[in-house]
Design a protein around this nucleic acid. Structure first.
Lengths: 225, 225
DNA sequence: TTCATATGCGTAATTTAAACACAAAAATAA
DNA sequence: TTATTTTTGTGTTTAAATTACGCATATGAA
């Protein structure tokens, strides 16, 4: 058999959210190809690490971030996708609470920045395709899995959750029906803490109960917006 | 940087359906490791072929089958998954009409056989995990994408479709409501042909209109059971 | 001719989702 | 101090979708 000369990399589309803005973490490439251009963080998989480890390592090295939620997105294998040769990339999709970490650039990255997904720069390789797919996945997934909480603070008022969904789904939601629906899934703990932002009645804080969610999931109860 | 020595393979879980039985195509391995054991068809990706081409080539070589529907399933990269060394496999998920092809074994396979997914043999590598995931994907996907038709004859009576769904979902369906729902999606052409199987009123034949489905999908209409 | 079997079409009951109204608690303005 | 604005919290009413179910029709078999 011919000797295979395919290299394997991982890439990670990391989303953050704050105040009605979904952002994605990009790095500016320090080396060729696409030197000086923005790209999704990622890099080659080491011989003895799992794919997830590779993603976490690359993110730590290039951006200093530690991921909150990570799942595999898709594998991209077009022979022409990388000018250096045949590089197949397994793309991941991650969520973080942006204010929880200080980002910094190092190794292959000369800069790291959060970009509003509505105002993206031109990207390297086929990273635009990867990012598009990740956005679709995020938008789809929040309607049937409670991953939105991974983007909010641990304790949050209901209005934050609602605003996140409005932003992600890109359409208005009836506040009262939304609240009823979420409450009915029984995965939120209501805390005895209130928070006041400016004027208006102070809001009660809620917390996502992941343990309870997994119990309900086992019993076949489905989270669906 | 250390020289990467990871090999890349593709594997395909191919499902067929006939008379209330979902089956999966397996090969018996001709060579070590796992010589003589059953496995999902697959093999190494060539340097200049796309991943989909690799899957189709391997299926053709090992089993003689041509796939009807193919989509990427998941990538498996555990460093310990293959005793030969680090081999990352990108798994695909395919559907065929089993009576449409004559299967035969060649190259790496000493035998090829359709197995009822309820009566599976022990499998090589981590192929049991891959197969489990594929079954879940199939069961999930038929409820929101009209892929079930890819398993039926081009022209089929409604009862065939219903039986397929009962088999895949593992629960009873109200025949009349099911029919109404499917009809309401407007993706079936009713033909002026009838077919009679044994006793009972002859059934009208239907045909899936893929073109119409893509039109409706563009308009945002969702197929959901 | 009658019976068993599977198809095809319809309506009623129930459940779920969507639309909508107003009270409560705080900051701000008069 | 009092009225006004703003945001939160809790309903109820109406429309839509789902589920349950009844019965006529066309065939093969007894």
């Amino acid at each position: 058999m011919n000797k295979q000369s395919i290299k394997l990399s991982v890439d990670a589309v990391v989303f953050g959210y704050e105040e009605g803005i979904i952002s994605v973490l990009l790095i500016k490439r320090k080396y060729e190809p696409f030197k000086g251009k923005w790209a999704i963080p990622g890099g080659f998989v080491l011989n003895d690490e799992t794919l997830e480890c590779a993603v976490e390592r690359e993110l730590q090295e290039e951006t200093g971030i530690k991921i909150n939620y990570l799942e595999q997105l898709y594998s991209f294998g077009d022979p022409e996708r990388d000018p250096r040769g045949r590089i197949v990339s397994i793309a991941y999709f991650g969520l973080v609470r942006p204010n929880a970490f200080k980002i910094f650039a190092s190794t292959d990255a000369s800069e790291v920045e959060w970009f509003n997904i509505k105002e993206l720069p031109e990207l390297s390789f086929d990273h635009e395709n990867i990012l598009d797919l990740a956005i679709k996945r995020l938008q789809g997934k929040i309607t049937y899995e409670p991953i939105g909480f991974e983007l909010l603070d641990k304790k949050f008022p209901f209005s934050d959750l609602e605003k996140l969904y409005v932003t992600l789904l890109g359409r208005d939601i009836d506040r009262r029906n939304f609240r009823k629906k979420i409450i009915s899934f029984n995965v939120l703990d209501e805390l005895n803490e209130k928070v006041s932002k400016g004027s208006g009645r102070p809001a009660n804080l809620f917390q996502f109960n992941k343990k309870r969610y997994f119990q309900l999931k086992k019993e076949g109860i489905i989270f669906e917006i």
